[in-house]
Design a protein around this nucleic acid. Structure first.
Length: 268
DNA sequence: AGCCAGGATGCGC
DNA sequence: GCGCATCATGGC
């Protein structure tokens, strides 16, 4: 399948720490699961190539997943007007926010706390291998904690176990969060074990495509302190409130360019 | 060897 | 509200 795409950077999108299930192959293609199907992805210019097996799999699935029908010009207008962001735009123009499955985003970002991307990817692959797919909440619910530990989760095993158990017996809980206002959805995310302020915003941003969410991790905190607070050691909650107010409905997109740019040395 | 990783939690203050 | 120790694990 070939899909026309403008203002799209596949590699930046898949390597910017928002999704952990794609592996870069030796030839530069990416392999992972999209809309329930194993795919291999490659980009050449304004074309996205998708190889997949048989199944109910459409171009629309891909366009939705990669947010390809969004006009990024309003975002680019913001990024161009601020020095640190313009640098990231120059390097990663076309980085887009993926629409992930809410449960998968929630599970992955429980694993992400005090962890590094390489190891999160490793745990993700362990989970896929153990269950022959990414586990559902029900899968996790009937798995013993020690098994999760053996898959590499460490001390986060009980967090995921308890979350899976709750969602297996409340199967529409995440669906209901879709229609909540930001504050309500965030406080519900915060109520899960192992989910604090940063991961809650990741769940809203990546799992529910709430673009007004603004996750503040160590990279965002450093970059924001330096470029927007004159180097002052302001708190994460202040940075969070500031980012959301300054960039509003596109705060999450701005955050993604700031994060990826900072992590790759484009912003310093 | 020791520090860090897309932090969260529980504590004392 | 803030600061701090602790939490598995492995990459670097």
């Amino acid at each position: 399948m070939r899909i026309a795409c403008t203002d799209f950077d596949l590699a930046a999108t898949l390597e910017s720490g928002q999704v952990f299930g794609f592996e870069k192959l030796a030839d530069g293609r990416f392999e992972g699961t999209l809309a329930g199907h194993r795919v291999r992805l490659a980009q050449s210019g304004d074309q996205l190539h998708v190889e997949n097996g048989k199944g109910p799999f459409s171009e629309k699935d891909v366009r939705d997943y990669f947010d390809l029908d969004r006009d990024l010009k309003p975002l680019f207008g913001i990024l161009e007007s601020e020095k640190p962001l313009a640098a990231s735009l120059g390097a990663f123009r076309g980085l887009r926010l993926i629409r992930q499955d809410p449960w998968q985003a929630l599970a992955c970002f429980i694993l992400s706390s005090n962890n590094n991307v390489k190891r999160i990817q490793h745990i993700f692959r362990n989970l896929e291998a153990h269950y022959s797919r990414f586990p559902s909440a029900a899968d996790v619910a009937r798995t013993h904690e020690r098994t999760l530990r053996q898959l590499g989760l460490g001390y986060r095993a009980p967090f995921l176990s308890r979350t899976g158990t709750f969602l297996a017996s409340n199967p529409f809980y995440l669906d209901a969060m879709r229609s909540c206002a930001y504050d309500e959805a965030r406080s519900r995310a915060l109520a899960f074990p192992g989910i604090g302020p940063k991961v809650a915003d990741c769940v809203l941003l990546y799992g529910f495509h709430r673009l007004d969410a603004f996750p503040v991790d160590v990279w965002i905190l450093r970059a924001m302190r330096k470029h927007y607070f004159g180097g002052r050691r302001v708190s994460e909650s202040r940075v969070h409130a500031y980012g959301r107010k300054r960039w509003g409905a596109l705060a999450g997109y701005v955050q993604q360019y700031l994060f990826h740019g900072s992590r790759n040395g484009v912003i310093y």
